[in-house]
Design a binder for these strands. Structure first.
Lengths: 249, 249
DNA sequence: GTGACTTTGTGCGTGCGTTCACAAGTTCGT
DNA sequence: ACGAACTTGTGAACGCACGCACAAAGTCAC
C-alpha cells in the first residue's frame, strides 16, 4: 500500500518470464526480515504457518508468494531458512550493491543517512547533497555533505542507480528532473509532491502526513460508530436525511 | 502499494452507508494536497482531468473516488476547489484536532517532531517520549522530551488518540502493547517489526528499507531486460527453450 | 514397506479496484 | 431558444488479489 501506495510501477503489465505480482514483491522484504531474524536465532527450518505469523500475513498467501520464486520448500517439512533468505535476496536484487544518493540533509536526511537498515541490505549511500551552504561541508554518517551543484558529477561519475529525495516540496521536482537527466531510473521520494517522471523511471513515495490522515479517517469512523451505537438508530436516521439535501447542493 | 501497504484496516468489510473503499481513502490525502496548492494559487475551479494530473492518477478513478463522498461537482464546469477541500477534510476527520504522541526521539523522531506537515493538518504533537536518559529533558520542537516511563500518564491524562513509534525494532512491540493498554487505537509504526495488536487497533507501517528493496527489484528487472535486448534474440531463444517451462510454468 | 501425519503448492471461487464509455447535466455562442 | 462543446457521475466489463480447501509429496514410527 501501501500502501502506501505505489506510483507507476506496472507500466508493463504483461506477465513476463519471471513475472512476480507487484503485491508479492511488496511483501518479500517483510518475509526477508522475518527470515533474517529467525536465522539469527539459529532456526534452521520454518513452516509457512510460522513464517506467516511472523510476517503478519495469511499462510496461504505466503505460500503463493513464495511459489512465484520457485519451489523452494519441502512438503511435510517447511522451508530452509538460510536458503530462502538467499533466494529472496537474489530475487530482490540484494546480492548486488546498490549505490544511493540522498538529496536534502535536513532532519529527515540526517535520519536516512544514519539509518542502519540501508547499509545492512546492500545499499550504499555514496553521497549526501544539500542546497544550504551552511549544511554543505558538514560531516554526516561519515560523509561530507556536498552541494547540490555537484549532483551531475556525483551521479554520473559514480555508478549511482537510486536517488532519495528528502527535500522540501518545492525543490523536489527540479532535482528529480536533474536526477532523471543524468540517468537515474529509481527515485524514493519523501517530499510532499507528486513527481512527474518518464515511464521508464520508477518512483515510490513515502508521505508521513498522508499516513496520519489515513489513520485519522479510521479513527474518526471508529468514534462515529461508537456514537451511533450509543445514540441508537434514530439519531443515525436524522443524520442520513440531510445528507440527501446536500447531494442537490 | 501502496505499497507500504496496510495492516488490517478492513476488519469490517460490510459496505456501510458512507462506506468509502480503502483504496479511495488512501488517495484522498493526495487530492487534498493538490487542491490546497490550487487554492493557494487562487484557482477557484478545477476539472477532474486537471486535478487527476496534479494528483498523478487517472481522471475516471478520481471522479469515482470523489463520487463516494457525494456529488460535489458541477457537470460542464468541474469542482469548486475550496468546497472540495472542505469536504475531503471533513471526510478524513481533519476538521478536528488529533493529539499525537511520538515515542522515540532519535534521528527519525527529531525529523517527525519538526515536520511541518503534521501541525498544518490538524495534528498536534502533545508529547515526545524516549527511553534514553540523555535525551530525556532535551527540548525538541518546543517540547521537553519526557521519559517513556510517563507513557501511561501522558496518554491517559491528555486525550491522545494516535501513537507514533519511531524506536528501534526490539522496543516497539512492548511500547505498542502499553499504548494499546492505555486506549490508543491508531498506531503509525516506523520500527522495522510487524506489530501484533488487537483487531480494534489500526496500525500503519512505514518502512524505509522495504521501499528501497522494492525499488531495487524493479531496477534489477530493468537491467535484466536491457541485457536480454542487448544480447539479441538468439540468446533470448536459448533462454526461452529450457524455460518452455516459462510458458507452461 | 506401510500407514498415519505433516506441510507445500495450487486450482478455483469470490470480491475489490480500475478503466472504459456513455448518458445526463451545464455553459456558451449565436 | 437552440445546438455545440464540455464535464460529471456511473453502469458494466475486466483483471488482479485473496483465501479456501485439497491433492501431491515428503517424513516418521514401527
Amino acid at each position: 500500500m501501501t500502501t502506501p501506495r505505489t506510483t507507476r510501477l506496472s507500466r508493463d503489465t504483461r506477465e513476463s518470464a519471471r513475472g512476480i505480482p507487484d503485491a508479492t514483491v511488496a511483501r518479500l522484504p517483510v518475509y526477508l526480515r522475518a527470515l533474517t531474524e529467525l536465522a539469527e536465532r539459529g532456526v534452521a527450518t520454518v513452516s509457512s504457518e510460522e513464517l506467516a505469523v511472523a510476517a503478519g500475513v495469511n499462510s496461504a498467501k505466503l505460500r503463493k508468494d513464495l511459489s512465484h520464486l520457485g519451489s523452494y520448500g519441502t512438503r511435510g517439512v517447511g522451508y530452509e531458512v538460510e536458503y530462502l533468505v538467499y533466494q529472496i535476496s537474489r530475487e530482490l536484487g540484494l546480492t548486488q550493491d546498490w549505490r544511493v544518493v540522498i538529496i536534502g540533509v535536513g532532519n529527515l536526511g540526517h535520519a536516512l543517512a544514519n539509518y542502519g537498515g540501508f547499509a545492512s541490505r546492500g545499499f550504499t549511500v555514496v553521497a549526501l547533497l544539500d542546497a544550504d551552504p551552511d549544511v554543505v561541508g558538514e560531516h554526516v554518517a561519515g560523509l561530507r555533505v556536498r552541494s547540490v551543484d555537484d549532483l551531475e558529477d556525483v551521479v554520473s561519475g559514480d555508478d549511482v542507480s537510486i536517488g532519495v529525495l528528502a527535500t522540501p516540496g518545492p525543490a523536489a521536482q527540479d532535482l528529480c528532473d536533474r536526477l532523471v537527466a543524468v540517468g537515474i531510473t529509481s527515485v524514493l521520494n519523501f517530499a510532499p509532491v507528486v513527481l512527474a517522471v518518464p515511464d521508464s523511471v520508477d518512483v515510490r513515495k513515502v508521505d508521513l502526513s498522508t499516513e496520519l490522515q489515513i489513520l485519522a479517517f479510521h479513527e474518526q469512523r471508529k468514534a462515529a460508530r461508537v456514537a451511533v451505537h450509543a445514540a441508537g438508530l434514530a439519531a443515525a436516521d436524522e443524520d442520513a436525511a440531510p445528507v440527501r439535501t446536500r447531494v442537490a447542493r
